[in-house]
Nucleic acid binder design. Structure first.
Lengths: 186, 186
DNA sequence: CTTCCAGTAGAACGTTCGGTCTACCCGGCG
DNA sequence: CGCCGGGTAGACCGAACGTTCTACTGGAAG
């Protein structure tokens, strides 16, 4: 029977934590996570060793999903690197316009977790590096004078779009950023 | 004797909270604030009504200081609106390069305080509006086609600079942003 | 000197935090 | 059947949370 009637407690916990830690922030309480997932307290500690482990795993999951969202947006935009990079900001326009958008999950985690030794920081760092490489790969195909520099500018526009989308929900930051991307790429 | 030997408990508390709530995040504990300020527990509740009131007042103070930093950076850059706007990002370059830079205080507060009714949110909204008007005033002097649009783009670059500075400390986001500003302003 | 009051020091409140523990339940397998 | 492992339910722990309270102190004003 390959079809599971209900996901196991590990899956339920990850799904609930991914949602709650984003809407409420990573400082959400353990009790809230458990009751949202309908999972026994013990399961959390057996599967993830503690709240920190759960949060880190949630970020890993979210990072994989988000990177895939970037990749598929790029892939669906054809072969022209310019169009592929512009497509990233079309995708971001939908992301920040969603009614439940609450900002960049990874920046929120980094700002909220004062302890620099928290395992979440390593995850966010890896995520940004992966995204950076994703963009760099497209930029390199353009044969521009300073590809590394341009890639950093694109990353800045991505972060700025997400931050502005969270701070000023009425604005349309992705449209503004997209226009700047057209400037950058000539 | 106009010279006070030591600032009163209200001042000490504000100063300590301004520092601690930035380095540790707004979820820092009351005990930490009190011991850092060397202030009695009771003083907090008499002067600010509670932790929420203290945090909101701290943000008001910080907002006034930060806006003044923008204003003086602009004023010191002469009369050309282009140079004045570029000077903003020269100032930001120093801000994000400081060793104790921990990101945008206001975005951090908005992301960390899940309760939308928290008084801090009103303060951050006012701060961003004031900054927006500050930039808009300079942009209008340039007689560009779409001043409101350009102002939003500048705001996005400011937010992106601060976010990137927090997320990727080795980068120099303000330099990248400054270059984009030159593109925007022609 | 006496009064007064802002401030200090700190106990104590009830709640919530993350984490540990015991007891029970149930389905699959030997 | 008997066992066993993963799961649930929930009591329990020490610590920290924000808040309220009483008792005391020191200096300025009357």
């Amino acid at each position: 029977m390959g079809t599971r009637t209900q996901p196991g407690p590990r899956e339920r916990l990850l799904a609930a934590a991914q949602e709650l830690s984003y809407q409420q922030g990573v400082n959400v309480g353990v009790d809230a996570l458990l009751s949202a997932a309908n999972v026994a307290r013990r399961s959390l500690y057996e599967h993830f060793g503690g709240k920190d482990g759960l949060i880190a795993e949630v970020l890993r999951r979210a990072a994989a999903e988000d990177l895939e969202r970037y990749r598929s947006a790029i892939a669906a935009a054809g072969d022209d690197p310019r169009q592929r990079l512009l497509a990233v900001f079309d995708m971001l326009d939908q992301v920040v316009s969603a009614p439940d958008f609450r900002g960049c999950r990874y920046l929120g985690a980094d700002l909220a977790l004062a302890d620099q030794a928290h395992p979440a920081h390593a995850v966010t760092r890896q995520y940004r590096q992966a995204l950076h490489e994703l963009l760099a790969h497209e930029v390199e195909r353009l044969d521009l004078p300073h590809p590394a520099h341009v890639t950093d500018q694109l990353m800045l526009l991505v972060e700025g779009t997400l931050a502005t989308g969270a701070a000023r929900p009425t604005s349309r930051p992705a449209r503004d950023a997209r226009e700047l991307v057209q400037h950058i790429l000539g």
